[in-house]
Design a protein around this nucleic acid. Structure first.
Length: 327
DNA sequence: AAGGCGGTCAACCGCCGGGAT
DNA sequence: CATCCCGGCGGTTGACCGCCT
């Protein structure tokens, strides 16, 4: 049944806030700060849940909040960060001064996701919709069978899905290069640690856990970032964190190489070409930067570094703006 | 003028993790 | 170590508004 309610629902007001309530809350927070929200309603003379007070303050009353429309730069940043972090709205909002996670979430759900769809991009995977539909169509869909029915061979095996789930690859219209031996080792380990495929006995081609390595790499980025602010643990990607860091180093380095070489191709983890172990200067510097952030900086600076790298925009010739996210 | 409809966004809900006890 | 409390988070809801018929 979950936790009990945080307050007595019978004695709290719900719904839109009145100017009087806003004034009370602002008066209280301006003199007492924002600690211990549970006590705020009582001390501020409000018949509201503490959570409601916190939400009202952080999303509307907090100083320095922007209430005007999102700019093109903010829009581009949200799209880019969503491709990197997924629906981690608080992390994304941290990169947008004056915006709240609720703002970003609403803007994404009401505007940006539709805009992406109109441009043929799946807003969840950031891949071309046609590509996503192809992948879905390639999955083996098995209708329920009566108990005791032996498996038959009437289902066509699905073709292997691409290892790279990165919009930049698809934007560039190229196939990813094969994984390096180092990355193959990561793939093998992930597959070995994964539970056995339930249909493995049927001789059907199954999705392997390593098929999602590219996504895991993104999760690892998220993991590092959230470690910085002490909020992120216990993700499946943690198990391969060290390997993922190496892969990420390769990811970053080859992205830069591709951008500098005029190819403009973003090379994703788990599938980049074998430019040799991730011990090169660029990759090492990247990982060092992340680790240093554990001690010195916040996620803001980390992501700012990533965003400053044009390779994260699929090369200099196809930034999100130039790809036409904007109005 | 009125009703239907879709878009927007403030607010709520329930879950989760971390810290305190 | 276990439990409880609190803040934070993402998903969802529903009121409100403007446009269209």
């Amino acid at each position: 049944m979950g936790r009990p309610p945080c307050c007595d629902k019978a004695n709290v007001k719900k719904g839109p806030w009145t100017p009087e309530e806003d004034a009370k809350l602002l008066a209280y927070t301006s003199t007492h700060g924002t600690g211990n929200w549970t006590n705020v309603p009582q001390r501020a003379g409000l018949k509201r849940c503490g959570k409601s007070c916190r939400l009202r303050y952080t999303n509307y009353l907090r100083p320095n909040l922007k209430h005007e429309n999102f700019t093109q730069e903010e829009e581009d940043l949200i799209v880019t960060l969503h491709a990197m972090l997924g629906s981690r709205w608080s992390l994304i909002a941290n990169q947008l001064p004056g915006r709240t996670d609720n703002d970003v979430k609403n803007y994404w759900n009401t505007k940006l996701s539709k805009k992406l769809r109109q441009r043929g991009i799946d807003p969840i995977t950031h891949r071309p919709i046609a590509d996503v539909m192809h992948s879905i169509g390639a999955l083996v869909i098995r209708p329920p069978q009566p108990p005791g029915t032996p498996p038959n061979g009437s289902y066509l095996p699905a073709p292997p899905l691409p290892l790279v789930h990165d919009v930049a690859y698809h934007a560039a219209g190229i196939l990813p290069p094969p994984p390096t031996p180092q990355q193959q080792a990561v793939i093998a380990r992930v597959d070995a640690d994964a539970p056995a495929s339930p249909a493995a006995d049927h001789g059907q081609q199954q999705l392997r856990w390593s098929d999602f390595l590219a996504d895991d790499a993104a999760v690892a980025v998220k993991s590092e970032a959230q470690q910085v602010i002490g909020q992120y643990h216990r993700d499946a990607a943690v198990a391969v964190k060290s390997e993922a860091q190496q892969v990420l180093g390769q990811y970053h380095h080859e992205s830069a190489v591709a951008a500098n070489g005029g190819g403009g191709v973003l090379v994703a983890a788990g599938s980049s070409s074998g430019a040799g172990g991730g011990g090169d200067d660029g990759a090492a510097a990247f990982i060092d930067a992340i680790l240093d952030c554990d001690k010195e900086t916040g996620v803001d600076q980390l992501i700012a570094e990533l965003l400053a790298d044009p390779a994260y925009y699929a090369g200099s010739s196809s930034s999100s703006s130039e790809m036409g996210w904007g109005c």
